[in-house]
Write a protein that binds this DNA or RNA. Structure first.
Length: 233
DNA sequence: GCGACAG
DNA sequence: ATCTTGTCGC
């Protein structure tokens, strides 16, 4: 095993790509997760014209989806957004937020791709491998790969392929809305990943995990108040 | 050389 | 991602 500095984030783009290719071999692409009693969603936003990265994590009970815990972290932004290198920009803040949780999730939903990535190492894989947590990539748009036309009805699902590899699923979570791109992050199979995403849906395009994280990460403090009410404080 | 391109 | 209100459509 090479001596890698996994927590050095200000890398050259070439170094970052090489690290992705190396770490991709550590992704576990089959089901290796405990009984799922709580799931978490992560979301990242930016402040101060992008100089500050803000990450929010929301932990929900499963399958009830009640909010159990949450955490928000702000750290200086070190990398710009480069397609394919998103995780190097967002991971520091996400890891900090995860470390502040008092309830650790059994499964993590990440905004962005898992293995549906040019080097099979999107942000969901990066967070999964570094934390050891089972993780799923839940992206709102496509980074790479091709798929057949997706029917308009809720529940429709087609495979996402790239370079003769099955890298993800394109899933219609509501009728006539843009689909979600779901892929393996770590310690879970594609079918199980899609199963859990669908189990966290209510009446919206995004799973509740992501919706809670979005609300907590947004600038309006209303969400935090709501969170405190739910937590009984 | 010409697009494509998670958030 | 972010700047931002009301508005059109299923």
């Amino acid at each position: 095993m090479p001596d890698l500095d996994l927590h050095c984030w200000d890398l050259s783009y070439a170094e970052a790509r090489t690290l992705q290719t190396t770490l991709a071999r550590q992704v576990i692409q089959y089901d290796d997760l405990p009984e799922v009693r709580c799931v978490a969603g992560v979301d990242v936003g930016f402040e101060e014209k992008g100089s500050v990265t803000r990450a929010a994590v929301a932990v929900l009970a499963f399958p009830g989806l009640e909010l159990l815990d949450y955490a928000v972290a702000k750290v200086p932004t070190l990398m710009p957004y480069i397609p394919g290198l998103l995780s190097f920009r967002e991971c520091p803040a996400i890891l900090e937020a995860l470390s502040r949780l008092s309830v650790q999730p059994d499964l993590l939903f990440c905004d962005g791709q898992g293995i549906a990535h040019p080097r099979r190492f999107g942000v969901a894989c990066h967070i999964g491998v570094l934390t050891g947590l089972p993780a799923i990539g839940v992206a709102k748009s496509r980074l790479c790969g091709k798929s057949e036309i997706l029917p308009e009805e809720k529940g429709a699902r087609v495979e996402l392929w790239d370079d003769n590899e099955l890298i993800g699923s394109v899933v219609r979570t509501r009728t006539a809305v843009r689909p979600l791109y779901i892929s393996i992050g770590h310690r879970i199979s594609l079918n199980t990943a899609v199963h859990y995403v669908e189990a966290c849906l209510t009446r919206y395009r995004l799973p509740e995990t992501t919706r809670w994280a979005d609300a907590l990460a947004s600038n309006r403090g209303q969400a935090v108040i709501r969170a405190n009410q739910v937590l009984g404080r």
